[in-house]
Every structure is written in C-alpha cells, then in structure tokens.
Design a protein around this nucleic acid. Structure first.
Lengths: 192, 192
DNA sequence: TACTAATCATACGCATACGTATCATATTTG
DNA sequence: CAAATATGATACGTATGCGTATGATTAGTA
C-alpha cells in the first residue's frame, strides 16, 4: 500500500488548503475578506460584464450551484449587481459595481503576493515548471470535474459587455442532464 | 493584472476538484462511497491504531474540527470504533474494525488507479517531478495552513498500537489558542 | 494544594463543493 | 403551433474546511 504522504491526491489537497490560507492571510492584511472563489468570480464578472451565472461558472470551471451562492454573497457585499436578462428571462445578468472595481484594484497587490507566497518553496524555474505541469494535468482531465472549463459565447447585455468573444464548445456539454448520467456519490452504500 | 487562468491558486483549486472527482468515480465503480478525506483518516487510524482525534488530524495535516465530523461518519459507517481513553478522559481512542480493514483492502486498487488517473496528462518523469515540487512547496509553507503536519508521540492504547514512534514537535505548536492569534476571516469587513 | 493555563472534543456559523430535484422559460421538433 | 427537450436559477441535503466558543480534563505553577 502506497504511503499516504506520497499520494498526489493528498498532496494536492494540502497545497490547496495552504493556498487558500495564504490568500486569505494576504487579503485580511489589507482589510479584505474576499475568498479565493469570490475573487475569481468577481474578476470574471469584471472582465466580462453581462455574463449570466451559468457562463461565469463555465468560464472559471466552477460548479453552477456553488456559484449561485458565491454570486449571492457578492451581491450582498455590494460589489456586483444582478438583474434579469432582457433577452432570456431565466438568466441573471451580472455587472461589477464601482465599489467592486475599487476593491479589485486595491487588493491586486495582495493577490499577486499571495500567488508568489503560496509557492515560496519553489525557485523561479521550479515555479514555472510547476505551473506548466498543473496546466497540463488539468487540461488532460478537464472533463473529469463536474464543471469543465468552457468558453461562453454571448455578451448578453449587448451595449457594453462585448469583450467576451472566444467561441467554442459551450452549452450542451455540461453535466446536469435531467435524466442524470455520471452519478458519483449515489447508489453507493458499501455492501455490508 | 495577471490572467486568472495562469494563477497558481486557481490551477491548484481546479486540480484538487478534479482529483476529488476522479477519486470518487473510481471508488463508486467498486461500490464504495468513501471520500478522499475519509479514506485518509481511515488509513491513518488503520496504520496507527489507538490515536486520538487530535493526533489523527495532526498526522494528516487536517483541521481538528473537520476531522471530528469525518470520524463521526466513519463511526456511523461501522469502519472504526471510538472510545474514551483510559489515560486521558478527554481523548477518544480510535481503532479500525474488521469491516473497515476489509473495505480498505478492497478499494486499494481503485485508490491507486485514482492517483494515476488524476495525473493522466503527465508522463512518468513529469509525474515524479510534479510530486517532488508539490512536496517541496508544501514543506516550505507547512505552517501557513491551519493544521500543519505534525508527528504524534503517544501510542495511547498501549498493547497493540505501538508502531507510531516518530517523535518531534507535536503539541504546543497548534493554533486554537484560547486568546487567538492568526485571525484570518475576522475583523475584516472591507472598508466601505 | 489552589489557581492558571493547556488540551481534547464538540458546538455553531459561514463558505465552498456538488448530487439531485424543481420551477420558469427557451429552444427544438414533429 | 404543440409537445418534447434543454437550459438558467434555485432549493435541499451532505461533506469538507475553518474561525470561534465552551465544557471537561489534565498539566503546570505559585
């Protein structure tokens, strides 16, 4: 049986927890309480104004249900606005507020510092190689996660939010089929 | 502003989510619903019978509060037993049950396969290098997380569980001081 | 020995993370 | 066009993950 301490899964989990802790430490030092996920969502909305929630989650490869809660908290913090799309009354169109833009700008140095600090054990060459391997591994298993990375294709709000672009296979490929496939934690119950 | 898609924090999170999905996919294929964390805890208890919960969490660098719930679910699944220590009535001594041992053995191939599959995008040399960098980064930032890796030092159950050993700085160094230090998400509230 | 400090476990609260189900609305098709 | 299907958002349940607080005990100290 392989040592637990050498298993990739275990190591990835530990580094992820360190990364979150480092991120929040850096941000709390400048009075911000954004989580890494909230930051990622806010960044995405800032750079692609007018996205709906499903597109945001596809953009950063997060779970749609989870992003719903993240968006909710960002709205409560007053850093984004959410309104019903005029083109599709199911969708909620998201835009960043001036306050959100200010905060993003203010925490930018801390975010950069966190990215550096979480890999402080690696030198420059190692960091570059590590990032390369991370991306390679992720690309190969993109479809294994619940929320594969996808590129959206509609600016939605028209007017301003037109800097999206990037077509490609969006839609259709997601999970969430009504008649589900790919069950994971279900039908389990280890046989007694 | 750096691209979100190139930030280590973002990439680490995505790979972690892929790793969890792969793990659970592999295990559900053989009828098991252990989570990665439950597996790590069970492995630790199996290899170091007689540990208390705090020692388990220190051993695998997980949070003590979280491990409490994990242990609880393992007890409910009937794979471990938890009883009050005779030496320290505050502590709960943990041991694996025969059923737990059987299950561990049965899922071993799936666990190995998951470790391989989650890095299927990397060749052998890359995988080795990736793991080396993971460990190096983690070692350097061990203290950044809430639950740094520590080695326990008391077998606790006496009799059987004596294969622990590995002394070193345990105790004292943990977080959880009564008068807290290292606040993270607190005293925040971004200035309006 | 009495008091203080440290430690184990646990409780509560909040934030991801995700399987699943449902409602509302679009889109596709026969 | 009407029925079937797909999609956006959300609700519910469970599992981490972790800051914080507290009760029970133990250890350390005046």
């Amino acid at each position: 049986m392989t040592e637990l301490a050498t298993m990739p899964g275990h190591l990835i989990r530990r580094l992820q927890q360190i990364a979150v802790a480092v991120f929040q430490n850096e941000l709390s030092a400048v009075g911000s309480d954004f989580t890494p996920v909230q930051y990622a969502a806010l960044r995405t909305i800032s750079e692609h104004p007018g996205l709906d929630q499903a597109s945001v989650s596809a953009f950063i490869a997060y779970d749609r249900v989870t992003i719903g809660g993240v968006i909710e908290r960002l709205v409560l913090k007053g850093v984004i606005e959410r309104e019903i799309s005029k083109k599709d009354r199911r969708a909620r169109v998201l835009t960043i507020t001036p306050k959100g833009r200010d905060l993003l700008e203010r925490i930018a140095p801390s975010v950069s510092e966190a990215q550096r600090a979480m890999l402080s054990g690696l030198d420059e060459a190692e960091t570059a190689e590590f990032i390369r391997l991370l991306r390679k591994a992720i690309d190969a298993s993109n479809e294994s996660g619940r929320a594969p990375l996808r590129r959206p294709e509609r600016p939605q709000t028209a007017s301003q939010g037109a800097e999206d672009a990037a077509p490609s296979a969006a839609k259709g490929g997601g999970i969430h089929q009504r008649c589900q496939r790919r069950r994971r934690r279900t039908l389990n119950k280890d046989p007694e």
